[in-house]
Amino acid sequence: MTANDLGGFLRSRRERLTPEAAGIEPGLTRRRVPGLRREELAELAGVSVGYYTRLEQGISASASGAVLDALAAALRLDPAEHEHLRVLAAPSRPVRARSRRSRLRPSVRDLLAAIPGTAAVVLDHRADVLAWNALGHALLAGHVAIDAPDSAVRPNLARMLFLDPHHRALYRDWHAKAQVTVASLHQAVARHPGDTELERLIGGLAADSPEFAKLWARRPVRTCSFYVRDFDHPVVGPVTLANETVTLPDDDQRIGLFYARPGTADADALTLLARR
């Protein structure tokens, strides 16, 4: 899964880019591979075919900033993909065998309790639930025990999204949510090479969910902290909520906040859910 992340990412973006989009005349001969050929991309980026081939095959594990910028421009990468490419190619990317359990700071738990009108959940880089407030639990996982984050096996929202039919049914646009989740896991792998628990999670999802395996192979990358989520909740029915994600300083953890504009039907639905 992690032996050649840089090469796999480059190949996925090369195969995605059509000659027309890259400004290359397609020619009259039939193309045997999707997207650009290696020699075409190398020429666009101003590097030798041999050097680019070594990058893609994992023989060379790093590249200079100038080469990465040239490849990003040639591949038409967006800012999030460009940054992901830099992370994957970092020569000093530390291997941290982080199989240890993530810890939640008490102050963050206090913060969740202080915002009862907003559904809130704290996740680590593996999408393990470290904590949620009562409304966050009721919104996202009312069918599991509220103290489940304190148990030996924490709920994992990525696993629930693909394998738990109750959680999956919450999202009206499940496919969009799935793409964001897989993208987040790809970025987590880049930041935490050697995390055996993360590797086990991804391997299990790929084995148990063909949908996850297919999305994972596409290597989606995106960075966005704000979404509008459409839910079909078993208690309050259809509800549309803003979803803001806040990254915690000094921790690879984030708080997901779900809220509605005051005075709207969606806000009334959240109030009803909080009461029940």
Rank of each mutant, 00 (worst) to 15 (best):
L104Q: 06
V49S: 09
E43D: 07
L112R: 11
A114Q: 14
E40H: 07
R101A: 10
V47C: 11
R103T: 15
R76C: 10
R30S: 04
P106E: 03
L41Y: 00
Y51H: 15
R93S: 08
E39W: 09
G46N: 08
S107W: 07
R86H: 02
V33I: 13
Y51G: 03
R105Y: 02
A114N: 15
R32Q: 01
R96G: 04
A73G: 14
D78M: 06
R54F: 12
A61G: 14
R98Q: 05
R86N: 01
S60G: 04
D69H: 14
R30A: 01
R96P: 00
S64I: 09
L71F: 05
A66I: 10
A66W: 02
R98F: 07
S64D: 15
L55T: 09
L85H: 03
P94V: 05
R30G: 00
R105W: 12
L71G: 06
V47G: 00
A73L: 14
E56A: 06
A73E: 12
A114I: 00
H84I: 09
R101V: 09
P79N: 07
R96H: 01
R93K: 05
S99C: 08
S107G: 10
V49E: 03
A114E: 11
A74R: 02
Y51T: 07
R37K: 04
V87K: 06
G46P: 11
R100S: 14
V67L: 03
L111R: 01
V108E: 03
S107R: 13
E40I: 11
L88H: 04
S107C: 02
L36H: 02
V95C: 01
A90G: 03
R101K: 12
R76S: 11
G58M: 13
G50C: 09
Y51D: 14
R38S: 05
V108H: 04
G35N: 01
V47I: 15
L71D: 00
H82Q: 09
L111F: 12
R30W: 03
Y51R: 00
Q57D: 14
G35L: 07
T53M: 09
L41M: 01
A73I: 15
V95E: 05
E39N: 01
A72S: 08
R100M: 13
R98L: 13
R96I: 10
H82D: 15
R109S: 09
G50A: 13
S64Y: 14
A80E: 06
R38C: 02
A90F: 11
P106K: 10
L104W: 03
I115G: 04
G58H: 13
I115H: 15
G50W: 12
A97P: 00
L88E: 02
A63M: 12
P91G: 01
A45H: 07
E43N: 09
R93P: 13
R93D: 04
V67H: 05
E43C: 11
A74L: 07
L71H: 02
A61E: 12
